[in-house]
């Protein structure tokens, strides 16, 4: 009840009605709004306004008019995701299927029951369109998000022998970045950061030198900071 006795200023009302202050002043002048106070300082009683809005079939939005902001899930940095997924060396295999299979075996964050399913999904994605992005890099990932994961992970797998991957530039691939995410949004964000990093030729050369995991993560941290800016 106390709430209904509240008085609003002209700028409050302009926010609630979604029109400018000028419009409200014109409506007051034309006698279309219930108003109290002097022309220099109009006051609107909330109870009167509600009655007025009901008669004129106008929607009053006292809770403000900001559009519904889509809830932003906690963003995960690429370096964090790489730490989740791990950096693996000496992946064996001589074609796409076998390297993917042995990569999956090495990622300990994936429950064993899901490994076969994940393998099939990755192969399906490769069949649709190769994920080899050139310069010896590939980003294998499933098309659908993996609901069973609690956190996104990116596994960097260095292959012992370069493998023919049907990449864009037809070069054999020697490094795999597996992106495995519980949601589409995280996937797209990680993918976009990773794609930004891999455009940097110094970083690609650095990767080809098979760096120590600690130094690699440091390097990724530096790069992703420039990406965010």
């Amino acid at each position: 009840m106390k709430d209904l006795k509240m008085e609003l200023s002209i700028s409050d009302l302009s926010k609630y009605l979604g029109v400018t202050v000028d419009t409200i002043e014109r409506w007051v002048r034309q006698g279309k709004l219930p108003v109290s106070g002097k022309p220099s300082d109009y006051r609107f009683r909330k109870a009167d306004l509600e009655k007025w809005a009901a008669i004129h079939n106008i929607r009053l939005n006292f809770s403000g008019r900001e559009s519904i902001v889509k809830k932003n899930e906690a963003d995960v940095l690429l370096s964090q995701a790489v730490q989740n997924g791990g950096i693996h060396f000496d992946i064996t295999g001589n074609e796409v299927k076998s390297v993917l299979k042995s990569s999956i075996e090495r990622i300990f964050n994936i429950p064993d029951d899901f490994k076969t399913d994940l393998f099939e999904r990755l192969i399906e994605r490769e069949k649709a369109f190769s994920t080899g992005i050139g310069s010896g890099m590939a980003i294998p990932h499933p098309r659908e998000p993996l609901n069973y994961l609690n956190q996104p992970l990116v596994a960097i797998c260095f292959l012992s022998n370069p493998v023919e991957y049907h990449a864009i530039d037809h070069l054999p691939v020697s490094v795999l970045f597996l992106i495995l995410c519980p949601s589409l949004k995280l996937h797209l964000n990680l993918l976009s950061t990773l794609s930004f990093c891999l455009k940097n030729s110094q970083f690609v050369d650095f990767l080809n030198s098979r760096p120590e995991p600690g130094i690699l993560i440091e390097q990724i941290e530096k790069l992703q900071a420039t990406c965010l800016v």
Partner: peptide
């Protein structure tokens, strides 16, 4: 727009991944 300006993404995503289903 973000993805459209990044050619590195062109072969990585399908439309079902970036469409607004809500």
């Amino acid at each position: 727009r973000k993805y459209a300006l990044d050619p590195g993404m062109y072969d990585m995503i399908f439309l079902s991944q970036i469409m607004d289903t809500d």
